[in-house]
């Protein structure tokens, strides 16, 4: 027979379902919520409810949004001729934190992974083609992950968009700033050589 109240056990069970949270961590979180002030604990519950009820995908770019369109799509300062394609909203956030890109985004909500049964029809590729077909976009930047599946997805999209008058680029790849050539993997060095650029 359990020595904990049913509601505490339920909360521990729910925490343990979260990624990266084991049973022990779930118990710690539960005890923490029982220790803090009631208003703080309820603020967390309120935040979770609020996110689940109000946040959905932007109808244009599929970023997370609280209205029909996200803040980036609604921002008139953003360059409508540049479109950056990412796999997930968290990739968009990482690029935004870099603070360099001033164009708009399109979130695919995944990548093509035929071995796992994920095809193009399960992503937002159809909506991307519709956006490009409208004619305002001049450059598409492929920012899918630099993995075999990410590259395959980018290649699939670039084949699909080849008939439209857009320039398709992809993020540069190669050696990390601050690393030492001698210790760099030969495959990464090969990438860096292939994507070498003019010395400005």
């Amino acid at each position: 027979m359990t020595q904990l109240a049913d509601s505490v056990v339920r909360m521990i069970d729910e925490f343990a379902k979260l990624p990266g949270i084991g049973r022990k961590s779930a118990e710690r979180l539960a005890y923490h919520l029982l220790r803090i002030h009631k208003s703080e604990a309820l603020a967390l519950a309120d935040a979770i409810r609020n996110v689940r009820e109000n946040v959905h995908y932007c109808q244009t770019c599929f970023n997370l949004a609280e209205s029909e369109q996200c803040g980036i799509c609604l921002d008139p300062q953003r360059d409508p001729t540049q479109l950056c394609i990412v796999e997930q909203p968290r990739d968009l956030m990482a690029l935004e934190q870099a603070g360099v890109f001033r164009g708009r985004y399109h979130v695919l909500l995944g990548r093509i992974a035929p071995l796992d049964g994920v095809g193009p029809e399960q992503l937002t590729i159809g909506q991307l083609v519709d956006r490009v077909a409208q004619g305002a976009i001049r450059e598409i930047i492929m920012a899918t992950n630099p993995t075999v599946e990410g590259d395959g997805t980018a290649l699939f999209i670039s084949n699909l968009l080849a008939e439209y008058p857009v320039t398709i680029t992809r993020l540069a790849r190669g050696i990390t700033t601050g690393s030492i050539l001698e210790h760099t993997n030969k495959e990464i060095l090969a990438d860096a050589l292939v994507s070498r650029q003019k010395y400005a």
């Binding site: 075999v148 599946e149 590259d151 395959g152 980018a154 290649l155 699939f156 084949n159 992809r170 993997n185 495959e187």
Partner: peptide
């Protein structure tokens, strides 16, 4: 890493 499959960014058929 010994060898990477490079065709992923060149040829979907090979991928």
């Amino acid at each position: 890493l010994e060898r990477r499959f490079r065709s992923a960014s060149r040829d979907l058929g090979r991928l």
